[in-house]
Write a protein that binds this DNA or RNA. Structure first.
Lengths: 231, 231
DNA sequence: AATAATAGTGTATTTTTAACACTTAAATCT
DNA sequence: AGATTTAAGTGTTAAAAATACACTATTATT
């Protein structure tokens, strides 16, 4: 034991990941069937235990990579859950993270191995421990963030059409938006590059594709610009 | 050790409290001189170690009470800090909280005992470990929260005048506000009760006192009202 | 050539925000 | 008693932002 703090309790830590994706006009969550006791077989968030020599963020990234194969994706710490009895197995303090991934990028093999499934946020089953509370908080955080930061693009392919983008925000905010006002607002911000290509997968006419331009966004930020979508 | 999770590291947990007060037209922070190694004698947030049988919120409340004697005050979890080397004594994951107290309510004896001092946020000294990072995050969180929730009242006495309230928000947002627009906005929300008493401490004319009415606020919330101050 | 399906566009109205200066009340001073 | 000082209190106007709303354009399919 350490020469400082010799008399304090050492406790078990966990990280749990709320993983969001967007597909088929719906916001979805990647859930697994828990493969250990307590709670074996129940729906659960993907989680893990930070090592003594591992930062929390690092642990969360490791856990995300374990399930999806992905690195360097949007990830934010959500909240630390520390009720004494939240895990019936032992007192475990869990630090929850949420991440936004481009659905389609993840490693299908890995996901199958963990018996994981994409579930629309409108149909989330009962989850083990306090994971439902985490999901609820993650959803509310995502909605708040999406109003003030351009994080929607983390959930879309690099190239996306205006109708796709609008549909994403409608999924996040659970609200229909006016397409003229939406286009006007988002394009007036000036960080989207319009491409010459069209996406013809969902209409005969085809919709022009756009790309988020991070340099332009940074440039705007440095000039005092604030992203804001009012829904 | 437990029958579940037998092979995982148990680690040291801490809670640290960013304690805000408002006085003399300034937002202030209650800081202590750390009384143990490592970092003995340095400026620090008040902290403590959650027991195995104690929830995180509970631990934070205990720590706050230890220093201020106060209970049932506004307190919110801020963030979990988990860099491996953040505390040179040992790997410690610290969950930071921030609280808003009515300055003047705290227990002067206790505070003297801990060698604690109220420091204006504009003059915060260098702090031990990553406590400056915590303070910075707390300030930004407070500013964000104060725009969308009526938490300013937690920092004022029960009865306060309009100029006091405005001065508080100016202190939080670090920005001068127009008094006519401020009054109009805040009074139009409809959750303040105007009293017949006046506060004559800062002018000959005296300023009418107001009280925050939580019932009216709840009533408004249930009708779909959203608090919002644009600064 | 007609049809069907989604993409794309502009304007008028309402609401919200921002800017701005004088009057009022009461204690203090002469 | 009257003048002075100090902060409290009050409304209006102009600008900007948000909202509501309906038709045309493109192209694959029949």
């Amino acid at each position: 034991m350490s020469k400082y703090y010799p008399n304090e309790d050492r406790q078990l830590l966990a990280v749990d990941c709320v993983i969001f994706g967007f597909d088929d006009h719906e916001l979805k969550l990647l859930l697994i069937k828990r493969n250990m006791e307590p709670g074996k077989g129940l729906w659960s968030l993907m989680g893990g235990f930070p090592k003594r020599c591992e930062g929390l963020d690092q642990a969360a990234e490791r856990v995300l990579k374990q399930l999806t194969g992905l690195e360097n994706v949007y990830m934010e710490q959500l909240y630390a859950y520390g009720e004494v009895d939240r895990d019936p197995g032992e007192r475990v303090v869990s630090i929850a993270y949420y991440s936004l991934i481009k659905i389609g990028d993840y490693d299908k093999e890995l996901v199958r191995g963990f018996d994981a499934h994409w579930v629309p946020v409108s149909e989330i089953p009962e989850l083990v421990f306090d994971h439902s509370v985490m999901v609820d908080k993650a959803l509310r955080r995502l909605r708040r963030r999406a109003r003030i930061q351009p994080i929607g693009f983390e959930l879309l392919p690099e190239k996306f059409s205006m109708p796709e983008l609008q549909s994403l925000y409608e999924g996040i905010f659970q609200k229909e938006l006016d397409k003229r006002n939406f286009r006007k607002k988002i394009l007036s911000m000036g960080f989207l590059d319009k491409l010459v290509e069209k996406d013809k997968s969902s209409s005969k006419k085809g919709a022009f594709l756009y790309k988020f331009n991070p340099e332009k966004y940074q440039e705007l930020l440095s000039k005092g610009f604030y992203f804001s979508l009012d829904v």
